[in-house]
Simulated scan of single mutants.
Amino acid sequence: MMAIPGRLYGIGVGPGDPELLTLKALRLLKAAPVLAYFVAKGKKGNAFGIVEAHLSESQIRLPLIYPVTTESLPPPLSYETVIADFYDTAAAVVAGHLDAGRDVAVICEGDPFFYGSYMYLHDRLAPRFEVEVVPGVCSMLGGAAVLGAPLVYRNQSLSVLSGVLPEDELRRRLADADAAVIMKLGRNFEKVRRVLDDLGLAGRALYVERATMQNQRIVPLAEVDPMASPYFSLLIVPGEKWQG
């Protein structure tokens, strides 16, 4: 007799502070027979570090190890092709456990559907299996909290932008924004800072690295070393204050 397929859980574990794990995430995490997590080769991974203390010895740990961690690859390699093949393989591995009747919890730093790696498994597996997604505190909200920066007042709108955008496009979108969060900085930092200076927004912009983590750093925009801005960094341009 064929096993009843397991259920897939996409679980957001928050931006770094273990206490920002939700009660629902913790309950499902502890109950799952298989815990899957994305990680770079030779690393433990931030998401795994957040939940490690809550795991039991009986749970199967399923690391999904990235083949590359940079989008810059020598020809003829294509990052898009390499990473798409990786997600195909990772989905097949997870599906093997689900087909065997084991529930799988895939943990994801922040929120699964907000720049979360989980979404690439979701797109591949949700048509075939029962799925539940548990939202998590995303990095931009963790950043706003530690910076003490209300994001949007009253009827303002918030733009979430990628620092990878071409400079002209980034300038256009920021010029039209009431408030903005800029992510994916890293090597794009100097370009982003230049655009903020050009638009006269540098005075409002706030920068944080690894928000809510133990090694969190808040640095004045002008003092950020563009060659040392880590992946887990973001910029917030809060909305203009409104005295309600």
Rank of each mutant, 00 (worst) to 15 (best):
M1N: 08
I4K: 12
R7N: 09
G10P: 04
G16R: 02
P18W: 01
E19W: 02
L21I: 15
L21H: 05
T22D: 12
R27W: 05
R27K: 15
L35A: 07
A36Q: 08
K43T: 08
K44I: 09
K44H: 07
A47D: 04
A47H: 02
G49D: 09
I50S: 00
A53G: 09
L55G: 08
E57T: 12
R61T: 10
R61M: 14
I65S: 03
T69S: 13
E71L: 11
E71A: 15
E71K: 15
E71V: 13
S78C: 06
F86A: 02
A90V: 09
A90T: 08
A95D: 02
D99V: 08
V104F: 05
Y115M: 02
L121I: 12
H122A: 14
H122T: 02
L125K: 03
L125A: 10
L125P: 02
V131S: 01
E132C: 07
E132L: 11
E132Y: 03
V133I: 12
G136M: 04
A145R: 10
A145H: 06
A145Q: 11
V146P: 03
L151P: 02
V152R: 03
S157T: 11
S159V: 00
G163T: 07
D178F: 06
A180F: 07
V181E: 00
V181T: 06
M183H: 06
M183S: 05
N188V: 09
E190L: 14
V195C: 09
L199H: 14
A202R: 14
V208E: 07
V208W: 05
A211P: 04
R217P: 01
I218R: 12
V219G: 00
L221N: 06
L221M: 12
A222D: 14
E223K: 14
V224M: 11
D225C: 06
A228R: 15
Y231Q: 09
F232W: 11
S233M: 02
L235D: 00
K241V: 13
W242G: 03
Q243L: 13
